[in-house]
Design a protein around this nucleic acid. Structure first.
Length: 226
DNA sequence: ACTGAGAATGTTCGTAAGTT
DNA sequence: AACTTACGAACATTCTCAGT
């Protein structure tokens, strides 16, 4: 899919954002960022984003039993939540978010931390051609410092404090993403659908669904009988 | 051209070490 | 003691290239 052109932003690299992934974190992570931008935020904590990711994953895992990845922490958090809470599989999103924000469960917190360990840094790897392979095998703090030196990235790290770490979206990117939100959202979704289809070959019709809004995907999935 | 084995690259997680 | 951070092994995916 062709992403909208911009003469100030590095769209060539941006379009390769999801080239490499073994789990689905990147997709959810970016989707969460885009949504926050749409809501007008440009400074966001890890925790807010991760809560969004979990809420998004909630429906897919608990209601449709999709497999999100070979060893996916997102999937595990959802299962854990299912055990300790009595939220329904179709629970309202705000309820899930509230629950997550207040949740003190050790395991959940642990998994949240696991989720924050890699994706936040590696998402921007396509922009940083100078960093190869093993160079990514460093600590978060180290990486954050390294990434902050790079130019023309989508976001930078403000402070480094576990889940409270904040990122700041660059204004140009925020504008771009907000303005083209629908297109970008569709692009992310397409990637996500492709990924899910590959992971769940036995569930028919994820790819063939051309519906753009998420609710549409859920509906379609339901109709195909899973 | 097509296939598949093996190599190369990239991603995530668990454990151990370090801090407060 | 509890929480953070560092490190590298394990696993997944993609690439390469010989052999057909």
């Amino acid at each position: 899919m062709q992403l909208p052109y911009s003469d100030i932003l590095d769209i060539a690299h941006f379009s390769r954002l999801f080239d490499n992934k073994s789990e689905c974190y990147k997709l959810f992570w970016f989707q969460a960022i885009a949504r926050k931008i749409k809501e007008g935020h440009t400074i966001i904590t890890f925790e807010e984003l991760i809560d969004e990711m979990i809420a998004d994953a909630w429906y897919m895992v608990s209601e449709y039993h999709l497999n999100l990845g070979p060893n996916d922490a997102l999937e595990r958090v959802v299962h854990r939540l299912g055990e300790i809470s009595n939220m329904k599989s179709c629970e309202k999103k705000e309820v899930i978010l509230d629950y997550l924000a207040a949740c003190e469960d050790k395991e959940v917190l642990n998994m949240k931390r696991t989720l924050s360990q890699n994706v936040p840094y590696r998402l921007q790897a396509p922009f940083m051609e100078s960093m190869k392979g093993k160079e990514w095998n460093r600590s978060g703090k180290n990486l954050a410092a390294r990434i902050n030196q790079e130019e023309r990235l989508m976001y930078y790290f403000l402070q480094f404090r576990g889940l409270d770490t904040r990122i700041q979206i660059q204004k140009e990117w925020a504008d771009y993403i907000e303005e083209k939100y629908e297109i970008i959202q569709g692009w992310v979704e397409r990637n996500l659908i492709q990924y899910l289809q590959r992971r769940n070959p036995s569930v028919p019709g994820i790819v063939t669904s051309s519906i753009r809004r998420k609710r549409g995907i859920w509906k379609r999935l339901k109709n195909t009988g899973k």
